[in-house]
Simulated scan of single mutants.
Amino acid sequence: MEKSYFKVHDVDDKGNKITITCEGVDDQQLAHFGGLDLHLKAVKTLIRNTNGTDFARKAGDFFIEDKVIALYLNEIGRLIRNFSDEREWLKDYSNMELVQNFLEHWQDNSEIVELVNADNQAIENASKEFNREEDEIWENMISELRSEKK
């Protein structure tokens, strides 16, 4: 697989400039024209690697994770709205209502169910592999300690 690259120059909702650079393999499985798969991988990676909530919780913000999740879901609602051909029809619905509607009906589409199930399996496989590697590292450390004692 070839590496792909993209750079996004944009502004956040407050007008502050933001630049996002991404390099990785675009599998071209979801979209065969390229680009979308890598974009999706980048977003999933950013979500998976969300850090910094421990400090906020220790500072007394016990709902920091819920706040982060709510803002991510709100952005997903914006995505649903932007993908829709019927944006005018959706103007009376909040982003969160669009997410809720999606969650209530995603299982009606067998192609989406299949995609989500495959993604869940990939997540589970990656988790098992990570745990296997962690166990192997731990076992190697223990073996080294034991051999040093002899």
Rank of each mutant, 00 (worst) to 15 (best):
M1K: 07
M1G: 09
M1P: 05
M1C: 05
E2K: 08
E2T: 11
K3Y: 15
K3H: 15
Y5W: 09
Y5I: 06
Y5H: 12
F6W: 08
F6N: 01
K7V: 03
K7A: 02
K7T: 03
H9T: 11
D10F: 00
D10S: 15
D10H: 02
D10A: 15
V11Y: 00
V11D: 13
V11P: 07
V11M: 04
D12Y: 01
D13W: 03
D13R: 09
D13Y: 06
D13G: 13
K14G: 14
K14L: 14
G15H: 02
G15F: 00
N16L: 07
N16H: 13
K17N: 15
K17A: 15
K17T: 15
K17I: 07
K17F: 05
I18L: 11
T19K: 07
I20K: 07
I20V: 04
I20F: 02
T21W: 01
T21H: 01
T21N: 04
T21V: 11
C22V: 13
E23R: 07
E23K: 12
G24M: 06
G24V: 12
G24W: 08
G24E: 03
V25N: 03
V25M: 05
V25I: 15
D26Q: 04
D26V: 01
D27K: 10
Q28W: 09
Q28Y: 10
Q28T: 02
Q28G: 00
Q28I: 00
Q28A: 02
Q29L: 13
L30P: 01
L30N: 08
L30S: 04
L30M: 08
L30D: 04
A31E: 12
A31C: 11
A31Y: 14
H32V: 06
H32T: 06
G34M: 01
G34R: 00
G34L: 00
G34C: 03
G35H: 01
L36I: 04
D37M: 04
D37L: 05
L38S: 00
H39I: 10
H39W: 13
L40A: 09
L40V: 12
L40S: 07
K41V: 14
K41F: 05
V43G: 12
K44F: 08
K44S: 05
K44H: 05
T45W: 15
T45L: 13
L46C: 08
L46W: 12
I47P: 00
I47D: 02
I47E: 02
R48W: 10
R48Q: 06
N49Y: 10
N49W: 10
N49C: 02
T50Q: 05
T50S: 07
T50G: 04
T50W: 05
T50V: 14
N51M: 09
N51A: 10
N51T: 07
T53H: 08
T53P: 10
D54P: 08
D54G: 10
D54H: 09
D54F: 04
F55M: 10
F55G: 08
F55S: 10
A56S: 09
A56T: 05
R57M: 07
R57Q: 11
K58T: 09
A59E: 06
A59I: 00
G60C: 03
G60D: 04
D61Y: 09
D61E: 08
F62E: 15
F62Y: 13
F62T: 15
F62P: 06
F63S: 12
